[in-house]
Design a protein around this nucleic acid. Structure first.
Lengths: 168, 168
DNA sequence: ATCGTCCACCGAATTGAAATCGGATGCACA
DNA sequence: TGTGCATCCGATTTCAATTCGGTGGACGAT
């Protein structure tokens, strides 16, 4: 996982694909000012190098019968590495878990879950989380609103080097 | 935003596209057992109906010079609708903000931010968050690890109706 | 029960994009 | 000044996306 440096065009490609991953390579090439063949090569390289980790459809949870989301704040009592690892894997494997954060501070884990209804939430928390031995306190907060950024966290290009090859 | 019912094939399509949004329509059609033309029509309909909200590339933050992420827990003092709305918009407009949760419970907002370094985090919290008048307590927790699910929260197809038209 | 309508599906034909490859060009470095 | 390398381009080939007319099953109405 070495960090090769991305030039301005790479940033533009990433921003464009983050915004709309399904646009044609031809469009993309035009928007970044490259020939389709060159653009395709860059996208392939970005993908192979692991800089682009994947392409995902954003599906409306409501359409899947999800009416309720929550954040579950978890505190661990025994901070043993293996227990923590096991808990992490267990939670990550639950289909209801959408985001899993391991954080420093007054909580240890923050779990973003999406469920069908209140009863589903109750059963999930009781059976899959609260029952684990390594847990301390638990706090569940309903989510009223959730917004996920669809743009890159791209602030100040810090004067990226120009493209290699011939052009400026 | 009416909730039309999705059959088994729709679920398969959504799951497949959530996992890999860039597979060709031909592949997708084969994997769900439909002719390419029929499959394309379904995808178009799912998109038009707002069930598929978009397609996004998942970009490695490290490649963008992000070495640090955090959760910021925010408590509001004056719960006026307009102040809250303004704060929400303000935060959502920050490029560093990747997720924004409005929750019930002991915090009011949970903000997931991605920054270049510690100094960037300090300036972000101080200038863009802590300075707002409507805020009460603030707590910032570093993120050690973050995992986002790449599968649908699709539990128990609750016996979806079969596809309309001729085939079962 | 039968008729008629509707809807999803299919598959052939067309359009258009993706992928490949040879050649050209500027830059780095000697 | 000359050599090597990485990138880009554009023509060509290959393959996918899209369109559209036709088919048949499900369902409601008579």
């Amino acid at each position: 996982m070495e960090t090769r440096s991305l030039d301005r065009i790479d940033h533009e490609i990433l921003a464009a694909l983050q915004n709309n991953a399904r646009q044609s390579n031809k469009e993309l090439a035009a928007s970044v000012g490259l020939a389709p063949s060159s653009c395709l090569e860059r996208v392939k390289r970005l993908t192979q190098d692991g800089i682009i980790r994947g392409f995902h459809a954003d599906v409306d949870p409501k359409a899947l019968g999800i009416t309720l989301e929550a954040l579950v704040f978890v505190r661990i009592v025994r901070h043993q590495r293996e227990l923590m690892q096991a808990l992490w894997s267990h939670l990550a494997a639950q289909p209801e878990v959408r985001d899993l954060y391991d954080v420093a501070g007054s909580h240890d884990l923050v779990v973003h879950v999406a469920v069908r209804d209140v009863d589903h939430l109750r059963r999930l928390v009781a059976d899959q989380i609260a029952s684990r031995a390594e847990l301390g306190q638990l706090e569940t907060s309903l989510i009223f609103q959730h917004r996920r950024s669809t743009t890159l966290p791209d602030y100040g290009h810090e004067h990226a080097p120009p493209a290699r090859g011939r052009h400026e």
